[in-house]
Design a protein around this nucleic acid. Structure first.
Length: 781
DNA sequence: GAGTTTGAAACT
DNA sequence: CAGTTTCAAACTC
């Protein structure tokens, strides 16, 4: 295998053989561009002739290894191992210190692709040695970096905004690296020029084969690409802007490549699109993983890498160049292809960038990623693969967020007016801050949704829909709502969230926390720990609280039967359908003020209540109002359809009863609306939904993973509104909990939920199944 | 906006 | 489980 001594021809032959063995190579050679390959080979030959090459050859020991690696690397499974091989100093000699740095940066991509890259390069041709060396170096660097990356990822979503710029930059940088790695790995002998030369279709084919062979990395990339595209269309605006900015910066930085970059960018999209199309098979997860990794890398990016905040675009540009060089392997080669390389670079950047974005999104969307973990694991990041890592990272946000808020958030938001407000706030709020806030808030929601989806496949669609809806609200409708609420209602609350000063927003005192939502700007809390940054803390606290009271985050107000409403609702006062799970202890408010959770929730007091002098408009404990007994509840449960009616009636009654009300409240335009509408309507009373109401609703969902169900709820809500709720509770371990309430308050809903009406519940049962997602909330377990 | 009231949550 | 304290929302001025 010692190629150094061998003539270029012999080397070429070997390369061919190796390529064939790989299979990937075959594809390349087969491609129409084969001529290019020839060219490349010639170039490589030239390169071989070069003193540098000779020098490298003199260092032959490395080369042999390369060849060996190649074979090994071929195995898709052997990702990690390969990289180590080439940590030779050669690279440095050839490329100089600069490369070293970059390598690290560039490397990140390799770890993922490392196997491929290493193989291709090594097998490919001796000339490539430098590249291989680079690659080899890269992997190591990557590994190290990855560790740092993880941490970076851990950063909360909201912080993410801060990092965005850096990320975008770094992402670009990384992306280029990734690309290079991909291309290199696949190109093998063909080399970079060929890669670039390849049409997207060929490339796609090539990738496909590779992917089939087990080149997950490629898959990841592809997905990333797809995601990117999607992201562009869907969410991506921000990302795109970021990316574009970054790219622009980069481009500007590297005058040489500017045009090419632009072109590449343009073509790049299509290119990736093609690739993505071909690659769709790949696990989305893997792609996500890449994105994360990339992002992480970029973020974590070694300081050495220089992307450092201020550092500069220059460095980035350089890195790009370097990366490009790496990918192409030899500067000389690049020289030939420079324009292309430039283009590719640009493409890479952009694509990568998008990938990141896409990956990130995916993470958000796809939290599960269990599968992806495999891929990720190959990296060192892997842990990411674990639910944990994922959560920690962006996803962390998502997952964790989800965990933290999990279903609760959405539920709460959806159901509770506050939630609604919350969303609106984020949307409406001022641009910058709002964006950030929104992002965080949205992300949480999305994440939750995504998590829910992940956890509960069936619901996915719904959840997604809900998620989208939420987004829409935020972006579009929310403002209106906010305004309307805020203005009309005149309540500053819409914007406001919590004002915790001593609880650090880690206790149920905090509405946000109770609702399973992170605190946002509008919050005037002090020393707030209810933020993505402190996800761990939040989760831990949650667990604690839950351990004490499993239903702590469950909805306080349980809607039991609608039928009751109808029957009893006649009193008009009773939204009998719903009851506070624990009941109230009002002594002075007469259950006529929001101090009373029952009143707040728009429900009548029940047996569970220990209130004194109850005058609850919605129903008195004594029974004057509509008090629902367990039996009644159970009976009520039977009718799903009734629920809707009940809700309506309840809403009406609530509205009537409630002096305060926001017209808006009644209108849940938001995606969550459905839930809200049902719920809110009940509360329609004021703009603000009673806090309890939110948390209760949201919480119930959240923990159990109900969240997911929520989407269904929303949809079905009308048809089978309450049933779900009760079920949850019933399904939830705690259903009994309520009963445990101090006064032996029993939660009627509970009853209904549990055993009741089998027929109706079938649907619920499904939901309940999804509920298990609850664990998902605490992926950390 | 500051202060008071209120009752849930948390603590003992 | 009961009593007390802490807390933050709701409310009042």
């Amino acid at each position: 295998m010692e190629e150094g001594a061998e003539s270029s021809d012999s080397v070429a032959e070997k390369v061919k053989e190796n390529q064939k063995g790989k299979g990937i190579v075959v594809v390349v050679t087969d491609t129409p561009e084969r001529s290019k390959n020839n060219q490349i080979t010639t170039s490589t030959n030239k390169f071989e002739d070069s003193p540098v090459f000779n020098f490298l050859n003199s260092l032959s020991p490395f080369e042999p290894v390369k060849s060996t690696h190649i074979t090994q690397t071929i195995n898709p499974l052997s990702f990690a191992s390969i990289p180590s091989v080439f940590t030779s100093p050669h690279v440095s000699s050839l490329k100089g210190s600069r490369f070293l740095r970059r390598h690290q940066l560039a490397d990140p991509s390799k770890p993922e692709f490392a196997t491929d890259g290493g193989n291709t390069i090594d097998t490919g041709e001796p000339t490539i040695d430098t590249d291989a060396a680079n690659n080899s170096d890269k992997p190591d660097g990557n590994l190290n970096q990855e560790g740092s990356i993880d941490e970076a990822f851990c950063q909360p979503s909201y912080e993410f905004s801060k990092l965005e710029v850096e990320l975008s930059q770094s992402a670009v940088y990384d992306s280029s690296c990734l690309h290079s790695s991909l291309t290199t790995s696949y190109d093998l002998s063909a080399k970079h020029s060929l890669k670039y030369a390849y049409t997207s279709s060929t490339f796609a084919l090539f990738i496909q084969e590779a992917s089939q062979k087990g080149l997950y990395a490629s898959g990841e990339n592809d997905e990333g690409v797809n995601q990117i595209d999607q992201d562009k269309e869907a969410t991506g605006c921000d990302w795109e802007s970021f990316i574009s900015d970054a790219t622009d910066l980069l481009i500007s930085e590297s005058p040489i490549n500017t045009e090419s970059c632009k072109k590449s960018v343009e073509s790049g999209e299509s290119f990736y699109a093609n690739v993505s199309n071909n690659m769709q098979n790949m696990d989305s997860f893997s792609a996500a993983g890449l994105g994360e990794q990339v992002g992480e890398r970029s973020t974590s990016e070694n300081p050495s890498s220089q992307l450092g905040e201020g550092s500069g675009l220059k460095e980035i540009a350089e890195t790009h160049d370097i990366v490009a060089g790496c990918s192409t392997s030899n500067p000389s080669e690049n020289m030939d292809d420079e324009p292309e390389s430039g283009l590719h670079r640009g493409v890479r950047r952009r694509c990568l960038v998008f990938e990141m974005a896409g990956a990130l999104r995916k993470h958000l969307d796809e939290n599960s990623a269990s599968d992806s973990s495999l891929l990720m694991q190959s990296d060192g990041n892997t842990s990411s693969g674990d639910g944990q890592l994922i959560p920690t990272k962006d996803r962390s946000d998502s997952s964790r967020c989800v965990l933290a808020g999990i279903g609760l958030h959405l539920n709460a938001l959806a159901t509770t007016p506050k939630a609604y407000k919350f969303v609106a706030k984020s949307c409406t709020s001022a641009p910058h801050e709002d964006l950030l806030n929104n992002s965080s808030a949205v992300t949480m929601l999305e994440r939750e949704i995504s998590t829910v989806e992940n956890n509960v496949p069936p619901v996915e669609d719904d959840s997604q829909a809900s998620g989208y809806v939420v987004n829409e609200e935020i972006t579009q409708s929310s403002p209106k709502k906010k305004r309307s609420k805020l203005e009309q209602a005149g309540e500053g609350e819409a914007c406001k969230r919590c004002n915790c000063k001593k609880s650090k927003c880690l206790k149920l005192y905090c509405e946000c926390f109770a609702a399973g939502v992170y605190c946002v700007e509008p919050c005037s809390c002090v020393d707030c720990f209810n933020k993505p940054v402190h996800e761990d803390t939040v989760l831990a606290t949650r667990k604690q609280i839950e351990s004490r009271n499993p239903l702590a985050f469950a909805p306080k107000v349980i809607r039991s039967s609608d039928s009751l409403c109808e029957t009893r609702s006649d009193s008009s006062k009773t939204p009998a359908s719903a009851r506070h799970k624990r009941g109230c202890n009002c002594k002075k408010s007469g259950c006529l003020k929001k101090y009373c959770e029952c009143y707040q929730g728009g429900v009548g007091c029940s047996i569970n209540c220990r209130c004194e002098g109850c005058k609850n408009v919605f129903g008195r404990k004594d029974g004057s109002g509509a008090i629902v007994t367990e039996v009644e509840l159970e009976e009520d449960e039977g009718d799903i359809t009734e629920k809707s009616t009940v809700d309506r009636s309840f809403q009406k009654t609530a509205i009537q009863n409630n002096l305060e009300q926001n017209p808006d409240s009644a209108l849940p335009a938001t995606p969550l609306q459905c839930l809200r509408s049902s719920v809110q309507h009940t509360f329609s009373s004021k703009n603000k939904p009673p806090r309890s109401s939110f948390p209760s609703i949201g919480s119930s969902f959240g923990k159990t993973g109900i969240f997911v169900a929520r989407s269904k709820f929303d949809k079905h809500f009308e048809t089978v509104p309450e049933d779900e709720m009760p079920k949850f509770q019933g399904g939830s371990p705690n259903s009994g909990v309520k009963s445990s309430s101090p006064n032996s308050k029993r939660v009627s809903p509970h009853h209904s939920g549990l055993g009741t009406s089998p027929g109706v519940r079938s649907g619920r049962k499904l939901i309940l199944q999804s509920i298990p997602s609850f664990p998902s909330l605490t992926p950390k377990h």
